[in-house]
């Protein structure tokens, strides 16, 4: 009997079915925990740092929105999360996560905006894999390169100095600096196009 095709199919099917059940159960139990962990451990400290002094009315982690960024070159769906902070019933601050290709891989950046005066509140590297000692300096919050974004007016657009803007690169790490700046620029564009409608909601 053990060599019959139907028996093999049945055994394999049962094993696969039980495995599927087990996985579905575990997945159901762990997904909410995982999501909460990511938000709390990676985003919240940064948001607290940027918005902590503003006495926001709401918890921006709770009031997050998922932005659909369309599809990338390979046809995969791209999304990012937009965090909005309200004061007096009005959306005053926003933060979102963007990424751009750097020297050693994607650089993921969280950019926080103050919407009233169109200023960048701050930027923070969430993840990067740049050359240590050079490009990796983008993850150091005290780096002048990172500091220079705070308070920058974004309504006219952010740009590198070589493109006629105000951003100075880290010496010896031009690629990483450009990538980092590109991520910030992308964030400003997204905020400009999306926050108006988001605030109306």
């Amino acid at each position: 009997m053990r060599n019959k095709i139907w028996f093999m199919a049945v055994v394999l099917g049962i094993v696969a079915f039980l495995a599927g059940l087990a996985l579905a159960g575990v997945k159901g139990m762990t997904t909410p925990i995982i999501e909460k962990r990511i938000l709390e451990q990676k985003i919240k400290p940064s948001l607290d740092e940027f918005f902590g002094s503003l006495d926001l009315e709401n918890d921006c982690i709770e009031d997050r929105q998922v932005l659909d960024l369309g599809k990338d070159a390979r046809g995969r769906k791209q999304v990012t999360t937009l965090f909005l902070g309200k004061k007096g019933g009005k959306v005053v601050v926003a933060a979102l996560k963007t990424k751009a290709a750097g020297f050693g891989g994607d650089i993921e950046v969280l950019t926080a905006f103050s919407l009233d005066d169109k200023k960048i509140l701050g930027v923070k590297t969430l993840s990067q894999s740049e050359t240590m000692g050079l490009g990796a300096r983008v993850s150091n919050d005290a780096e002048p390169f990172i500091q220079q974004f705070s308070g920058m007016n974004y309504s006219d657009g952010v740009a590198m100095r070589s493109n006629g803007g105000l951003v100075d690169a880290i010496s010896g790490a031009t690629v990483s600096s450009v990538a980092f700046t590109a991520a910030v620029i992308r964030a400003t564009e997204l905020v400009e196009t999306n926050v108006g409608s988001a605030a109306a909601n």
Partner: peptide
């Protein structure tokens, strides 16, 4: 996969 999910969560 179970290991992976549990580790991600805890």
């Amino acid at each position: 996969v179970i290991t992976e999910l549990v580790m991600k969560a805890y």
